[in-house]
């Protein structure tokens, strides 16, 4: 049977989490449909049909879908559900906000944050902030899964040629009015799928000092991340938080600066390939997961690292 993937996008481009979710879908079926709900998504649908391995793109295009309110999208998804063995969405705030509503409408228990697919009915997911890994099985007639993007590669976004089908919008009575989104603009790579992430914690002491971290990030073409303590203290916005209640990241290189390494933080970054910890406290638990630890004052270490990187660049050019 076919598998339905719910696209995460901004009405003009797919988020990379959608491509990760398609890769997860490939483990379940050769017949994968992508469902795009939004406004003025004609061009987006046209681009999406090129994605390798898709056999259909379904779109629902309506002014009211512009802001992705889950009350409106969920019924449109559940109306299609009976044609599918599995419905997948990324385990991002988008997917987390939406898919449980589909679960309610279909009376099916959703499996959250899947990191591995063992078979069509058996899935692996972390519990207790990743301190335990649970393998679960279900025999429901439709499987609802949110997929942790960092656990699956991105699928190719070219090489395919899927037909596009449009379905009509069906309205739902809704009292919620969308006001706005406060989105910070940055030229740095996106935190969720950057090759290098430089994260700062309470050790940075204030938002001004975070500039030091931005400078390092820019030298490395890295994304910036933060601990909850740094966000709570107002050094940086919530969209940068890494951890159990923030974003999951798994870059090739994660540099934790002035972060102690609480389990809730580790939950979001311990799948990184190489971890560097810079902390002046030798006892900090972050060193237990670090491949390279530097016990030093960050205000000394970071400018030095920037200098070393400049030197390296000079040698290379």
């Amino acid at each position: 049977m076919a598998v339905l993937v719910i696209a995460e996008h901004d009405n003009s481009n797919l988020k990379s989490s959608t491509l990760n979710t398609i890769t997860a879908a490939k483990k379940l079926s050769d017949d994968i449909h992508l469902f795009i709900l939004g406004r003025n998504i004609g061009e987006l649908a046209n681009k999406s049909k090129d994605i390798h391995f898709l056999s259909k793109v379904i779109k629902c295009d309506n002014e009211k879908l512009k802001n992705f309110l889950p009350e409106l999208s969920a019924p449109l998804i559940s109306n299609l559900a009976e044609n599918y063995s599995h419905i997948l969405a990324p385990a991002s705030t988008f997917g987390k906000n939406l898919l449980p509503r589909v679960s309610a409408l279909l009376d099916i228990t959703q499996i959250s944050d899947v990191i591995d697919i063992v078979s069509n009915d058996t899935f692996v997911r972390p519990i207790y902030a990743g301190n335990a890994i649970s393998q679960v099985q279900t025999n429901q007639k439709i499987n609802l899964l949110t997929i942790r993007p960092t656990s699956f590669e991105k699928s190719e976004d070219s090489g395919g040629d899927a037909p596009i089908e449009e379905i009509p919008f069906v309205d739902t009575d809704l009292k919620t009015i969308f006001i706005n989104r406060e989105v910070s603009k940055s030229d740095r790579p996106e935190l969720g799928n950057a090759r290098i992430v430089v994260s700062g914690g309470r050790g940075l002491e204030n938002s001004d000092n975070f500039k030091l971290l931005y400078e390092l990030a820019d030298k490395l073409n890295a994304a910036v991340g933060a601990s909850r303590a740094a966000v709570d203290s107002g050094y940086i916005g919530n969209e940068y938080q890494v951890g159990q209640t923030g974003k999951m990241v798994a870059p090739e290189l994660y540099i934790a600066v002035g972060i102690s390494g609480a389990i809730q933080h580790l939950a979001g970054m311990k799948e990184s390939k190489v971890i560097v910890a810079i902390n002046k406290d030798l006892e900090a638990p972050i060193f237990n997961v670090a491949d390279y630890g530097l016990s030093s004052d960050l205000f000394q270490a970071i400018p030095e690292i920037i200098k070393e990187l400049d030197l390296l660049n000079q040698i290379e050019s």
């Binding site: 228990t109 990743g130 890994i133 393998q135 679960v136 279900t138 311990k270 491949d291 270490a301 690292i305």
Partner: peptide
């Protein structure tokens, strides 16, 4: 609706090294 087949410990990261200074780290 869901049966837990097993709960296991997450894979442990292997121990890393401490570096002595920034030069060595880079």
């Amino acid at each position: 609706r869901i049966k837990t087949l097993k709960v296991i410990e997450p894979p442990k990261r292997k121990a890393g090294v401490m570096v002595s200074d920034v030069k060595e780290l880079v």
